[in-house]
Write a protein that binds this DNA or RNA. Structure first.
Lengths: 243, 243
DNA sequence: ACAAAATGGTATGAACTCAGACCATTGCGC
DNA sequence: GCGCAATGGTCTGAGTTCATACCATTTTGT
């Protein structure tokens, strides 16, 4: 038998799950809210339903909800027609936080940018190849319109996340969606932590439009290229600022 | 504020990670062993070390070890110089299992093939771009030699997994490695469950060689293209067999 | 006004997980 | 041979998480 490859075990074995179901719930929900999956004023699904979706007990889910309430992201009303409503106003980046990013965190940030350069173009490619029809086309066009309509930076950020997640959802692959969600969450975190940089929104909007055009035309290669450039532009900007 | 996009929540929220730390450990270790990360006869790291790597308590890790022992994947000896040794002989695919694949499982299989067509070419691209030097080049060449030297199908399968994981590890991105590991694990499962098909090993070996050449030459575009074709060939074969 | 339904709020006991300490066995170096 | 060190084996008490009820509040429908 050949000798054991020493480089693989270290690379392959990873910490098992983010411990504490409770924390994982808080993270998923907070991320969904911050990314604008549940925009300001919308109502989350009932507790029993959310618990089922996340595969946790209602007790655990409620602890998570309590944390979100505590943190001011949501408010809760009882009774029929009640529920948990999103109250978080999308925040504008604050420069102060930039200083205290741990090296480990920064490494993860850079890693997310690399991963993104693979996953999001791939998602665009799959989306175009899937030849979306009907509702899916409308979802995409609607997401594009939302980004371009958003004026305030914070709202624009959320709309941008929603746009990228919508593209990913067109790929129709749970694994792709998970990857893009994770990447967008990290990206969002980065953008909150570094000083406001006046991203060239007009430039970004042109790229979004070109991307939608390519996807709707079923031009997979072009969709991937456009997304690649889009990601590279963001990455270059961010890499300069964090490391 | 715009109305809530109804398609995103369903796509974005996912079950919170493996509730039982124990099961997650078993899965990770069993996968690592089956993929040949720890080949037959090698010794796993000491319990305390593994527990630290996987971020679980030693008690939990030991339960997982007991399960692996029970399943006949490993054997354990006490005392200094002792430890847990891999005893699993790589298995040859058995046709019997093919019938009882649940629809849900089959969907995940097809999803893995899609995800793979994005992630592995991306990994190859990053690997080539990173311009590996010294030890990394040797690891890659060694992995290639191992695949081409493997004669028996089962051993070839493990060597193939190790090769792909090695390519991924050159990308130097934890997220990429995780993605490729997950994809390879599912691929391995598929290959075990479907009837033996006489994969064209010579063809596959040529692609591997071309891939290594492109990576070592730093030709990222070529590396990606070669890997894309390699994945497409496998995918076409498998898709025909699972539905 | 009243009942039904939908929703959040509370309670309980079992099972899992953790951290840390300590025990038992074996090989290595002197 | 003897002691040290490395390793697996065991125990315990506290904290989480779970499943499953049941309670409380509010809106809707008649």
């Amino acid at each position: 038998m050949t000798a054991s490859p020493q480089h693989l075990p270290e690379a392959v074995l990873r910490p098992v799950r983010g411990h504490h179901a409770f924390e994982a719930c808080v993270e998923q929900l907070a991320t969904a809210i911050r990314l604008g999956v549940y925009p300001l004023g919308t109502t989350l699904p009932p507790e029993r339903e959310l618990a089922a979706i996340l595969h946790v007990s209602r007790a655990t889910l409620r602890e998570a909800m309590a944390a979100l309430r505590e943190a001011g992201l949501v408010e809760t009303r009882r009774g029929r027609g009640g529920g948990t409503v999103v109250t978080l106003k999308p925040r504008t980046p604050s420069a102060r936080a930039a200083a205290r990013v741990a090296p480990e965190r920064r490494r993860d940030w850079l890693d997310a940018l690399e991963f993104r350069s693979v996953v999001e173009p791939g998602a665009a490619w799959l989306a175009a190849r899937s030849r979306p029809t009907g509702v899916r086309r409308e979802q995409l066009e609607r997401a594009l319109a939302d980004v371009q309509a958003a004026r305030k930076p914070a709202a624009h950020r959320q709309a941008d996340s929603r746009f990228h997640l919508t593209v990913a959802s067109l790929a129709n692959s749970p694994r792709v969606i998970e990857a893009v969600t994770s990447v967008q969450a990290t990206l969002h975190e980065m953008l909150l932590a570094i000083p406001v940089l006046d991203t060239n929104i007009a430039h970004s909007d042109r790229q979004h439009a070109a991307l939608v055009k390519a996807i709707l035309a079923g031009n997979a290669a072009r969709a991937r290229t456009v997304m690649e450039e889009h990601c590279d532009d963001t990455a270059a900007l961010l890499r300069g600022l964090v490391g």
